[in-house]
Design a binder for these strands. Structure first.
Length: 519
RNA sequence: GGGGGCAUAACUCAGUCGGUAGAGUAGUUGGCUUUUAACCAAUUUGUCCCAGGUUCAAGUCCUGGUGCCCUCACCA
């Protein structure tokens, strides 16, 4: 990296300036010609819209903006592929149509430059809709080369690190992220239609809770206190129910200080929602609606009206209703032994190397659940709800009135992953306090570091009976869009800092741009 | 953290038995008024990931490191 910028490009930039043009104009509109004010010129159009309306709008003067990603030049004629957010449209610059001074700027044009073209929408000899430019302007001079035009950007690391390149070079990548946005919006509309309120709760938590995970830790200088990035918004959202906000949801970025994998990123998006006077079964029905709405927005709808996605070479039918099965039933089916069978289970656990950590109820049921994860979860292709979980491993869920061994909780499985987790919320302050204390004594680094007494106090004021649920938004999008890795649904997945290139590791006095090398 | 693989031009990739670096694209120069990865001609670009080692000689072999990918483990 002797020179950061490409010398050829810098030369073009100088040439462009020398011709009197601004390589980075503040305004995109064309300057008026010969003193005629240009207030009534055409409005900017998107490529996809022009292509769709090519027939009926033939002969109209149109204005397009976009990045030049293809060029087929002739002496007095050039075809340009102009790419914008919506797609690509061809522009044709003919010397006898374009202003002479502006035609000259083609010499300073490189692939990757962003341009404006105004001209007549028509067709070429082979029938391709094309804007035949009468005006042409470079709006942004690019100093970096775009990727190879046929293979594009193939290296997975570069695609994630330079997502801005991946996005402009690949329409399919853009479409995926537009769909991500549409999916989230569709879910939001389901909530709003049910009189939910969207809220924002704190990201910095003095006590981390609401899930089991290792947190990121930080420090607040003015108060000289340790803070944690939230691992879940749960406890704050339920405080809102105490406060009388009866239906709330939050698309919450949460942070978990754990490994990276195809389905794990240290920060990810959960949508959590809570509804007073509902319960886990009400959440099941709402989760089903949310998944269906998301699937429609993702384009999973088939011609016969059914919903379907293909994820990791496996087809999933998403048309409701989704299967529902109790934990006890599905456990018995795949383990061959009842989850409550304290005589028969130890042998099964031994077969799979699962040990009971200590004599507590929690440790016993944790081991039972390990067996569940080992023997049952691989069979849960989904979409399926597993409900009524062992109460001992659900510190935030309300035990069933009929049998307190079990708690009102479901997990929703799809694509071999756990996508959602919901409770009938525990609202007995004394029982909640007891369960919190049990967790803190356990000293598991993934359990809360101390009892959140303010939350217990909130419960003491009275949390109405309620259902609550959290859905892993990124994983849901993975399944719906058929993306194998979470990195493909995150715009900027977590990466190690690039060497010598920003990030904490490179915060030295060395200048980023080395302008010359005396040797 | 364990195991396996990869790292060569701005991009996509070749590189034989160890013999001193290649193609296409992009860029540059010229030609061309209907192309679609346009074409024709000429042409520029390298810390072969880094550091050691073996060797007369290393992109190639060895050791260590770094990064990425896959996989297992971990991960409500």
């Amino acid at each position: 990296m002797a020179d950061f910028f490409h010398p050829d490009r810098l030369q073009k930039l100088e040439d462009l300036k020398a011709s009197g043009a601004d390589p980075y104009p503040a305004q995109a509109a064309f300057a008026p010609i010969d003193g005629v004010t240009a207030t009534s010129g055409p409005k900017r159009e998107l490529a996809a819209a022009l292509l769709a309306q090519a027939e009926e709008r033939q002969g109209e003067t149109v204005l397009i903006y976009g990045r030049v990603l293809g060029r087929r030049g002739y002496g007095k004629l050039a075809f340009l592929d102009v790419c914008d957010q919506s797609g690509r449209i061809q522009a044709c610059m003919q010397k006898d149509l374009v202003l002479p001074a502006e035609f000259e700027h083609l010499k300073q044009l490189n692939l990757g430059d962003i341009i404006a073209v105004e001209g007549e929408l028509s067709k070429t000899k082979v029938g391709e809709p094309t804007v035949f430019g009468t005006r042409f302007r470079i709006l942004t001079k690019a100093l970096e080369n775009p990727p190879e035009k046929f293979h594009g950007l193939a290296d997975a690391e570069l695609r994630a690190r330079r997502r801005y390149v991946d996005l402009f070079a690949n329409q399919e990548v853009r479409d995926s992220f537009f769909k991500r946005s549409a999916i989230i919006q569709a879910m939001r509309e389901v909530f709003l239609a049910r009189a939910y309120t969207e809220v924002d709760t704190p990201v910095l938590h003095p006590i981390y809770g609401g899930a089991n995970a290792k947190p990121f830790s930080t420090h607040h200088n003015a108060l000289d206190m340790q803070l944690f990035l939230r691992i879940a918004p749960e406890l704050y959202l339920k405080r809102l129910l105490v406060g009388g906000m009866e239906r709330v949801f939050e698309f919450a970025r949460v942070f978990r200080n754990e490994g990276l994998s195809m389905r794990h990123n240290p920060e990810f998006t959960m949508v959590e929602f809570y509804e007073a006077y509902s319960d886990v079964y009400g959440m099941m029905e709402l989760t089903e609606q949310l998944v269906v709405a998301a699937a429609r927005a993702a384009g999973c709808e088939q011609q016969d009206g059914s919903l379907k996605t293909i994820f990791r070479d496996e087809e999933f039918q998403l048309s409701p209703p989704f299967a529902r099965v109790t934990y006890a039933d599905v456990f018995l089916e795949h383990v061959g032994c009842a989850a409550t069978d304290r005589v028969g289970l130890p042998a099964k656990m031994a077969d799979h190397g699962i040990q009971v950590a200590n004599s507590s109820e929690y440790a016993w049921w944790k081991a039972v659940n390990d067996l569940f994860e080992e023997l049952v979860e691989p069979h849960l292709r989904g979409p399926i709800f597993v409900h009524d979980y062992p109460a001992a491993i659900c510190p935030l869920a309300k035990p069933l009135a009929s049998d307190p061994t079990w708690a009102g909780r479901f997990e929703f499985f799809l694509g071999g992953m756990e996508l959602a987790n919901a409770f009938s919320e525990l609202n007995d302050p004394q029982l909640q306090l007891a369960k919190f204390e049990e967790q803190v004594v356990d000293k598991d680094p993934e359990s809360p570091n101390q009892v959140d007494m303010d939350y217990v106090r909130a419960l003491a004021y009275g949390l109405p009976p309620a259902g609550g649920c959290g859905i892993g938004v990124d994983r849901l999008i993975m399944v719906l869009l058929g993306k194998d890795t979470i990195r493909d649904v995150l715009l900027f997945p977590h990466m190690r800092p690039e060497k010598d290139f920003g990030g904490a590791a490179a915060s030295t006095d060395e200048p980023l741009v080395k302008t010359g090398d005396p040797s």
